[in-house]
Simulated assay, not measured.
Amino acid sequence: MNKKFKISFLILICFTLMSCPAAHFYDYEYNGISKKENYGYSRILYSEKTDIIIKCGFFVTRIGRVKGLAAFIQFDNKLKNINKSDISINSSTYGALSFESELAKPTASDFDSDFTFKIPIESGSERKILKRIKNDTITIKIKGKVFEFIKKE
């Protein structure tokens, strides 16, 4: 009986560890017309022939308990002339998000560059920050065009 209990307990622990997410990400919704992509990204018409894919939200990592706001932007390869200085991102609650990284896609695809902008949030629990960012707006300006994302509920 003792051996069966140990094996059952080990299996339970394995399932518990495997099912816990590495982080939580709370999406902001695009305030306009967009097509939803996988994993909460929004495909937005940038010009007549080009799209951009954007995801904005609040994240909490389980390892290190890092919290903050983030915006991920992918540009169509027809928009190669856009760089980080052409983009400004602001939260109505926490202010400007700073440039974090630019990653080149290793595979051939329509979207070949990623821009990541983040702002860390130091104080407050996850629940308190979620209350604070209710109805928060993240405004993204790219070469004069404005895109707004709103945190609802």
Rank of each mutant, 00 (worst) to 15 (best):
I44C: 04
A22F: 07
I44N: 01
H24A: 07
L45Q: 14
F72G: 08
K35E: 00
E48T: 11
D51H: 15
F72D: 02
F58V: 03
T61Q: 01
N77A: 15
T16Y: 09
L69E: 14
N90P: 02
N83T: 04
Q74I: 05
I89M: 10
T50K: 12
K84D: 11
Y39E: 13
E48S: 15
L17W: 11
F25D: 04
R62F: 14
G64Q: 04
I82P: 02
L17G: 09
F15E: 05
F59R: 03
I44Q: 05
S19R: 12
F15N: 11
K84I: 11
L45C: 06
T50F: 12
G57I: 02
G68D: 01
K49G: 14
V66G: 01
N31I: 07
Y46I: 00
N31P: 03
T16A: 03
Y41F: 13
T16M: 03
N77I: 14
I53P: 01
D51Q: 11
S42M: 08
F59D: 02
L17F: 09
S88Q: 13
I53W: 09
G68E: 05
V60G: 05
G64K: 01
V66N: 08
G32V: 07
Q74R: 09
D51A: 09
S47E: 13
D76M: 06
I33P: 04
R62V: 09
I33F: 11
I53A: 11
I87C: 08
M18S: 14
D86P: 04
S42E: 13
